[in-house]
């Protein structure tokens, strides 16, 4: 205890913020890849694949991210796999983000008008060609605002990586607080940094949404 907030502390927080950004990017890329696979599986012609991917989404969306984190970080080692905090956080976020993005993107793929499918079929395009050349380019445009909006959720959710000891923004705040014991000040600073990271993205998402176009799936999150 003792001492006051100085430049070193702020540097440490800055470093934490950089890790928050880094972890968010890992989650976005990993979760994006997983989400793309899930979304395609969810609209697959095979009933089995649809059911399987649907079950995955239901299971992950019914489980808190915190529990997934604990399961990978504390659970896997008891089975004999050793996991670093960064690996545990990245894996959990990828699994979690994949389910949500997969569901958002499924909605976007399905909101491309039916006639587009039929017209592409009429042009004798194969299923893969229809998907790549006709449906996906339109779906990507529909998907942009909700995906940008979901990035805010990703940034906020990386704060849960602090519980497995990964030193991102929230955790670096806890560490500083342990030496200074000025919780209100420190958590307020952290909240401000998160806000500064998230607010511009929220605004961008809203702006993209207002640009009009077809109805889009609403993103929910805590």
């Amino acid at each position: 205890m003792g001492g006051s907030l100085n430049a070193n502390h702020l540097m440490f927080l800055g470093q934490g913020a950089l890790w928050t950004i880094g972890l968010s990017l890992i989650a976005l890329i990993g979760g994006g890849l997983a989400g793309a696979v899930i979304a395609l599986c969810r609209v697959s012609p095979s009933r089995f694949v649809r059911l399987l991917s649907g079950a995955y989404v239901q299971l992950i969306q019914g489980t808190p991210l915190l529990v997934i984190m604990f399961l990978t970080y504390f659970g896997l080692p008891t089975l004999g796999f050793s996991v670093s905090p960064l690996a545990a956080a990245s894996a959990s976020l990828t699994v979690y983000v994949g389910a949500y993005l997969g569901e958002i993107w499924r909605g976007c793929i399905q909101s491309v008008p039916r006639q587009q499918w039929e017209a592409a079929e009429g042009l004798a395009l194969s299923r893969t060609q229809r998907m790549i050349k006709v449906i996906l380019p339109q779906a990507v445009r529909i998907a942009t605002p909700p995906t940008v909006g979901f990035m805010v959720q990703i940034i906020k959710n990386t704060s849960l990586a602090s519980v497995v000891g990964f030193v991102e923004l929230a955790r670096s705040g806890q560490i500083i607080n342990n030496s200074l014991f000025e919780p209100l000040l420190i958590y307020a600073i952290i909240a401000v940094i998160y806000f500064a990271l998230c607010f511009p993205i929220s605004r961008l998402s809203r702006k993209l949404e207002q640009r009009g176009g077809p109805a889009r799936p609403k993103i929910l999150a805590v």
């Binding site: 805010v152 906020k156 959710n157 704060s159 849960l160 602090s162 929230a170 705040g173 958590y187 952290i190 909240a191 998160y194 806000f195 998230c198 607010f199 929220s202 805590v222």
Partner: peptide, 10 residues
């Protein structure tokens, strides 16, 4: 805006 742009943990 404040609540929606900061993590629940914080």
């Amino acid at each position: 805006e404040t609540i929606r742009n900061t993590p629940l943990l914080v």
